[in-house]
């Protein structure tokens, strides 16, 4: 929710307020503050470097700070980079907080309990397993290819030659399993219309409901303030 807020609010104060007032206290309560900061900073770092380089040197502006080759560093560029950075950090810490405090599988189950169709719940839950499984499969095929002397490092040509024979078998072998798995699911009454009785129920305390309503209200307020011009627009 905070991340949506961060998309809406430009400037410095808004995103910083989100990080300091909403995300960090929640993370401290949940006991994941240190991990959250580490994960978000690591994930944001490569993109942050790109943002700084690209916007500092390429943003047209009147105040030139210094030059490197054909590139001018401008004050406006620095300002833009700063604003983009705090916004990115707000987005990434809030999504990171969600990721660290919510077990993905229970999130999907809760969505189904709240009315998500079992078919879509299946897609979300199966994806959780399919992605690591495919990485594993790719790893197995990659080591098999390396054993046959294919290169996965080195020049672009070498990498191309290494990656394409890797991608093909991974994709085709996963696809051929689709047929039997869908039959096996149909045998177990998958796709039967009507609701299912789920085995687990996820606790939803009054405090959680209250916090959710508060955050939705704040988000609404933020959107209104943005539209009326209290918060600055995106650069």
């Amino acid at each position: 929710m905070e991340s949506v807020g961060a998309f809406v609010i430009g400037g410095y104060i808004g995103p910083l307020a989100i990080i300091v007032l909403a995300v960090l206290p929640a993370a401290v309560v949940a006991g994941v503050a240190r991990r959250l900061l580490r994960v978000s900073l690591l994930l944001t770092l490569p993109i942050a470097i790109s943002v700084v380089l690209v916007s500092v040197f390429t943003r047209a502006g009147s105040t030139v700070l210094f030059q490197i080759g054909p590139f001018d560093a401008t004050l406006e560029g620095v300002d833009f980079a700063g604003q983009t950075l705090v916004r990115l950090l707000a987005i990434s810490t809030s999504i990171g907080l969600f990721g660290l405090t919510t077990e993905p599988r229970s999130f999907v189950l809760d969505l189904e309990r709240r009315g998500l169709s079992p078919r879509f719940a299946f897609v979300a839950a199966a994806t959780l397993e399919a992605v690591p499984a495919m990485v594993e499969r790719a790893g197995v095929i990659a080591s098999a290819q390396r054993a046959r002397g294919l290169d996965t490092e080195g020049s672009l040509r070498a990498r191309l030659r290494g990656v394409l024979p890797l991608a093909g078998p991974v994709v085709v072998s996963s696809l051929t399993e689709v047929e039997e798995r869908s039959l096996a699911l149909e045998v177990r009454a998958f796709g039967r219309p009507g609701r299912r009785h789920l085995l687990w129920r996820i606790a939803d305390t009054r405090a959680q409901v209250a916090v959710r309503i508060l955050m939705l209200t704040l988000l609404g307020a933020a959107i209104v303030m943005r539209l009326t011009g209290t918060f600055p627009a995106l650069p």
């Binding site: 299946f122 397993e129 191309l160 991608a167 991974v170 996963s174 689709v178 869908s182 149909e186 796709g191």
Partner: peptide, 29 residues
């Protein structure tokens, strides 16, 4: 959205993500 498609979609998403993240990153183009 028959069962076959529902089973295919997670695999397809995994293909998107794994290839989008690893292969493109490895090729650096």
């Amino acid at each position: 959205f028959d069962t076959r498609t529902i089973v295919l979609i997670p695999i397809a998403i995994a293909i998107n993500i794994v290839l989008g993240q690893t292969v493109a990153a490895a090729l650096k183009v």
